[in-house]
C-alpha cells in the first residue's frame, strides 16, 4: 500500500494548499445536498403514520447527532496519531474539529428536546441516548476547556490528544452503560448494514441531508484548520509567500 499521502499529511504547507482546493468545494456541495435533503424531507416526504408531521425534525436531528459522535471518534483517532507519530497536523485537527462537534452535539440536544415535547410530552427525559449526547457534549467542553486553559502550545497539544483519546476509549462504555441504564428512545434510524426500516421516500432525503452535513462539516473544519496552520506557521517562509500572493 502506498503511504505517501499519510506522510504528506505531516506537512502543514502541503495540507494548506490541498485544503485551499477542497475546503470550499466540500462546503458548497455539502450545503447544496443538505438543502436538497432538508427541503425534500420537510416539504415533500410522506407523513409518519404515528407521529404525523412532528417526525420531520428527524432530517436535522439524526444527521447532527450522528455527526457529533463521528467528530469525537475522529478526534480520538487524531489524538492517537498525535501521541504515537507526533504528526503536526493532528493537534490542529483536534483543535479545529472540537467546536464543530460541540455545536453538533448542542443542536442534537436542542432538536431532541423539541422532538421530545410532542412525542413523549416533555422537553427532557432521562433517556439513554439523550443522556449520552449530553455526556458527549460535556466531553467536547472538556477538550475545549483544557485547550483554552493551557498557554503552552506544545503542552496544550499533548493534553488535548490525551483527553480525546481517553474520551474515545470511554465513549462506548459510557454509551452502553447509559443504554443499559435506561432506554425510551426509538431504535437507531441509521444502520448501514441493514435494510432501512422506513420507506425509501422517507429515507432518501435523510441520506442526502446526512451526507450533505458531513461534507459541510468537513469543509468548515478544513477552513478552521487552514486558519490554525497559518497562525502556527506564521514565521515560516511559505506562509509569507502565500499571504503576499493570495492575501488572507
Amino acid at each position: 500500500m502506498n503511504w505517501t499521502w499519510f506522510h504528506k499529511l505531516g506537512s502543514p504547507k502541503w495540507f494548506y494548499q490541498w485544503a485551499s482546493n477542497w475546503g470550499g468545494r466540500c462546503v458548497y456541495v455539502g450545503l447544496a445536498l443538505l438543502l436538497v435533503g432538508v427541503v425534500w424531507g420537510l416539504g415533500f416526504a410522506p407523513q409518519d403514520y404515528q407521529q404525523g408531521n412532528s417526525f420531520r425534525i428527524i432530517y436535522i436531528h439524526v444527521p447532527v447527532a450522528v455527526l457529533a459522535q463521528s467528530c469525537y471518534l475522529a478526534m480520538g483517532v487524531a489524538g492517537f496519531v498525535s501521541l504515537v507519530w507526533q504528526m503536526k497536523l493532528a493537534p490542529v485537527f483536534i483543535k479545529s474539529v472540537a467546536p464543530v462537534g460541540a455545536i453538533m452535539a448542542l443542536i442534537a440536544l436542542v432538536s431532541g428536546a423539541i422532538w421530545g415535547k410532542p412525542t413523549w410530552g416533555t422537553w427532557w427525559v432521562w433517556d439513554a441516548r439523550l443522556t449520552s449526547v449530553l455526556v458527549l457534549f460535556l466531553l467536547y467542553m472538556g477538550v475545549m476547556a483544557i485547550q483554552n486553559a493551557l498557554d503552552d502550545q506544545v503542552f496544550a497539544d499533548k493534553a488535548v490528544a490525551v483527553v480525546s483519546l481517553v474520551g474515545v476509549i470511554n465513549l462506548p462504555i459510557i454509551k452502553y452503560s447509559v443504554e443499559w441504564w435506561n432506554t425510551l428512545h426509538q431504535p437507531a434510524t441509521f444502520k448501514l448494514t441493514e435494510k432501512p426500516s422506513m420507506p425509501m421516500e422517507m429515507w432518501l432525503p435523510l441520506l442526502f441531508s446526512a451526507i450533505g452535513l458531513y461534507l459541510f462539516a468537513a469543509g468548515v473544519s478544513m477552513w478552521r484548520m487552514q486558519t490554525e496552520v497559518l497562525m502556527r506557521e506564521r514565521k515560516a517562509n511559505w506562509v509569507k509567500k502565500e499571504v503576499l500572493e493570495h492575501g488572507i
Partner: peptide, 26 residues
Amino acid sequence: LTVSLRRGAVLMLLLILPLYIPVIVF
C-alpha cells in the same frame, strides 16, 4: 494534565466526571 495550572481543580472535575458515569451506573 492540570498539575501545572494554579486553579486546575474545576477543569479537572469537568474533564474527569463524565468518565466516571459508567462506574456510577453499574
